[in-house]
Amino acid sequence: MTAVSIEIAAKTFPASGGAPARRLYADFSLEVADQSFTALLGPSGLGKTTLLNLIAGVDRDFEGRVAFSREEPRIGYAFQSPRLLPWRTVLENVTLPLPKTAASLTRALGLLTEMGLGDAADVYPERLSLGMQRRVALARAFALEPDLLLMDEPFVSLDEANADRLRDLLAELIARRPTTVLFVTHDSREAVRLADRLVVLAGPPVRVEQDVAVTLTPEQRTMPGEVDRFREASLGLRRGAVA
């Protein structure tokens, strides 16, 4: 239901406080198919978060347009930092964007439990570790049942075991309720594991350097050997070249 068509003629951050003006995007375009899972890879400081902000409509200060195939899609955005309301409990943070119904509450509690936060529902976010806060932010994004899910490096600052569990959970949630996903990451293994399309960005100004379809089966994705083989073959990466 939600394909996204992105055309950025120009996106520039003006000079401020001694920093020179930065031209991040010029004549950039990207088509995202409905119910696709696109992983965006690219070096730090390139403009990936900026891209998600443009798509989400938080940043409207650019030339170009972002069009959705449906009116006003519901957007779930797991920001690069958790952005929770510190004065509301974990559960309240997850339920606030939802309609006030018993179903919302059940869904929120269910998600929190699945994320291993069942005990933390009534805790204030600042008393949680950063990794736990990130999971709350993820639960908030999922609970909305979004048409478009934007995720900005959602699994950093989690330990490997937890991150793996959450990757599995993410795959499962999306299998259960398909949605369009744009997923920024620095971790190409994670990208291959989850996405059906890898878009490697380079620049500035940002351009698409590589655009690869991930052709692994769900079983192959859970096998580290297969994932590595695919990375090497498609991205031209030697083992361990990029974390």
Binding site: N53, A56, V58, I75, Y77, R83, L85, L96, P97, L144
Partner: peptide, 24 residues
């Protein structure tokens, strides 16, 4: 600003934003 953006994306609306984001 981070929280204001969050409230906007999650469609808090005016009253919810005031009560849960701004006033606290």
């Amino acid at each position: 600003r981070d929280l204001a953006e969050m409230a906007r994306i999650y469609r808090f609306g005016r009253w919810k934003t005031l009560r849960h984001v701004i006033l606290p």
